[in-house]
């Protein structure tokens, strides 16, 4: 089941225009990101970011991280990096609780977006997300949850599919096991 969901996700995410790679650990992830961009990167604080020391792993590779408010990072910063809550196989989607503004900025304004997904969090289809989505919305706290399925796209001129309308023009999904099986954290 795990392997099936993982390969379903990889297939579908690739179909919607993501670059999907399976990596050993976060060190490899940092290296991968450095190969794709010099930065500056928007890396928001989060539970998993702190737990795994993602920022220093990235800095070790020599890539630049943006310091200070992400609103000051320019209108089109080079890249953004986040973890994810879970993923949906059928549509190649990552689901990310983006309530902190830094998470939203890191996933909307950069040219390239890198997202780390633990394959154990992949559910089969949209209906498989109902439980987690309901749990994310328990209580009355403000909440901003994003489904992201590939890069920003448009077909508004002559119906020609064109990538990079307003959001990131590249989405790189880095599949790494052993990060977290908890759908409520990222």
């Amino acid at each position: 089941m795990f392997e099936e969901l993982k390969s379903l996700y990889m297939e579908k995410a690739t179909l919607v225009g993501c670059e999907v790679v399976a990596l050993q650990d976060l060190k490899e992830a940092a290296k991968y990101i450095k190969e794709k961009t010099e930065g500056p990167l928007l890396v928001p604080d989060s539970t998993l970011c702190t737990r795994f020391g993602l920022k220093s792993l990235l800095q070790d590779t020599g890539v630049t991280l943006h310091e200070g408010s992400f609103r000051e990072a320019g209108h089109l910063p080079a890249g953004g990096v986040t973890f994810s809550n879970f993923a949906i196989g059928e549509s190649g989607t990552i689901v990310l609780d983006s309530t902190p503004e830094e998470v939203r900025l890191a996933t909307t304004i950069p040219e390239k977006y890198f997202v780390i997904v633990d394959p154990v969090t992949i559910v089969a289809d949209g209906l498989g997300a109902v439980e987690a989505m309901t749990a994310l919305h328990s209580g009355h706290e403000p909440r901003y949850v994003a489904y992201i399925s590939g890069p920003s796209r448009t077909a508004d001129i002559e119906r020609v599919l064109t990538i990079g309308a307003h959001g990131p023009r590249e989405v790189h999904v880095l599949l790494i096991e052993g990060i977290s099986s908890d759908f409520m954290e990222n």
Binding site: S69, S91, T99, E101, H137, P142, A146
Partner: peptide, 22 residues
């Protein structure tokens, strides 16, 4: 559009954080 899902589905509830405030 014959897509399985669009690039984004965005779920927003309430007054989320914004530029150091709400």
């Amino acid at each position: 559009t014959a897509q399985l899902l669009t690039s984004y589905i965005t779920w927003i509830r309430g007054a989320v954080p914004c530029d150091g405030g709400t």
